[in-house]
Design a protein around this nucleic acid. Structure first.
Lengths: 242, 242
DNA sequence: ACCTGAACACCGTTCAAGT
DNA sequence: ACCTGAACACCGTTCAAGT
């Protein structure tokens, strides 16, 4: 039964629809709760039916990342290389922030799909057009690392959703005193980051500022190398001549 | 039966032993194959027994990362800040390379254990001792990101273990031609990276060189900021005055 | 009081039996 | 030829029943 009974979900399955449903489900319940079975249920379909559109769960996740990449906006082609890279990466960032699971999915995927390669090619092409050698472009891409996807790793804890039942004020104070003694420098930079508001260590720092700080540091750094005609051959032989 | 029958595994369980066994198992079979049940079996113990030493699987993984952090070697205290950070990070890199699963485990963990905080405190302390303000130190740590753990993200495919049955030479050539047309810049930088040896795109690049390139780029960049007396307040008001 | 086997509520994926 | 229910070989974790 329920074969043609409920009549609500009649749109035929397709890879596109499976992937979009995967993205929507991950947006709603988090990536950890996305399973083949749960996704099938969401689509009103038997789990096995998904296997006609994706080979396995890995391919599903790859495809979901591709959907996010599809949301990246290409920058105005008239921009100079630095502005173009900035815009492209900040557009990627907006997409990744819209899909909180995407960061972890991108980090754990190793498969390079056409969408992934296409994006990397566009970024590399921007550097090449800006006068970077293929050699330097390669190293620059490595230096940017996952920042080309618009995110940098979480250094500190994610803000916690009150999992422990709120310690008493005096216990809280004792804990902070111990923290200050054991990790004085971490405390210090957390204070510097939040101008004194310590609601959860590391909780209140301006991630967007950090991202752009690091991005510009890297772009300015490689710009300088480009101007100097840096090559990896010269860099290697400077360390180990011969 | 087997309660006292086999006599081989009699060392009493402890958190230490559980974590070390977890590390050894992950080294052997990969992190994906590490399950509570499998680990218990490896220790000659019923799965439930592990729960006396770790609260759950998340805590097991956190503990395993802590074991790896325990292998980091603190640098000679007489080194200047840049050399000290370099040594520390490169020591972390050696440990992470010894445990290939550690990279992914560190990326996916969000819990900040005492071991994690202790290491971050040491790195932050090195910058502070080198004349960096707490403010700049904070931004520098963010810019380094996961590179303080000794790894940078994989940009290209991991070398694949012949999963497809080796295409025919002409098919291989057709595939390469299509790749060259669709992703010319990716191809170009792959060629530049490997000096023409393209056994698997992106396969043969010198990751250690890339890592040190990016590390030095960042350290030199922040050194310049330190000399200039950079502050985030000034940087912010340069963008949006007032 | 301690320990643990069985059970619960899931997984991804295969495959044989049905139409 | 197509489709799919049941099954396989797993998970992490709970809990009640046993000693």
């Amino acid at each position: 039964m329920a074969q043609q009974g409920d009549g609500v979900r009649r749109a035929p399955l397709s890879r596109e629809r499976v992937l979009r449903a995967g993205v929507a489900l991950a947006d709603e319940v988090g990536i950890a709760a996305v399973s083949m079975r749960r996704l099938a249920q969401e689509l009103g379909v038997v789990p096995m039916a998904l296997y006609k559109h994706v080979a396995n769960k890995d391919e599903l996740l790859d495809g979901m990342v591709d959907v996010v990449i599809g949301e990246f906006e290409p920058p105005d082609p008239d921009l100079d290389w630095k502005a173009a890279v900035r815009r492209r990466v900040l557009s990627a960032r907006r997409a990744v922030l819209r899909h909180p699971w995407a960061r972890q999915a991108i980090e754990s995927r190793t498969r390079r799909t056409p969408a992934v390669l296409g994006y990397m090619d566009a970024v590399a092409g921007t550097f090449r057009a800006g006068g970077f050698s293929a050699d330097l472009t390669h190293h620059v891409m490595h230096a940017l690392g996952n920042r080309i996807w618009g995110f940098s790793p979480e250094l500190f804890d994610e803000p916690r959703g009150a999992e422990s039942p709120a310690p008493s004020p005096e216990e809280q104070q004792a804990r902070e005193a111990e923290f200050a003694q054991r990790y004085p420098h971490v405390l210090e930079i957390a204070v510097a980051a939040t101008q004194g508001d310590l609601s959860g260590v590391g909780g209140g720092c301006d991630e967007q500022f950090e991202f752009e700080f690091a991005l510009d540091l890297l772009l300015d750094g490689v710009d300088r190398l480009r101007e100097q005609g840096w090559t990896s051959r010269a860099a290697r032989s400077a360390v180990a001549p011969g």
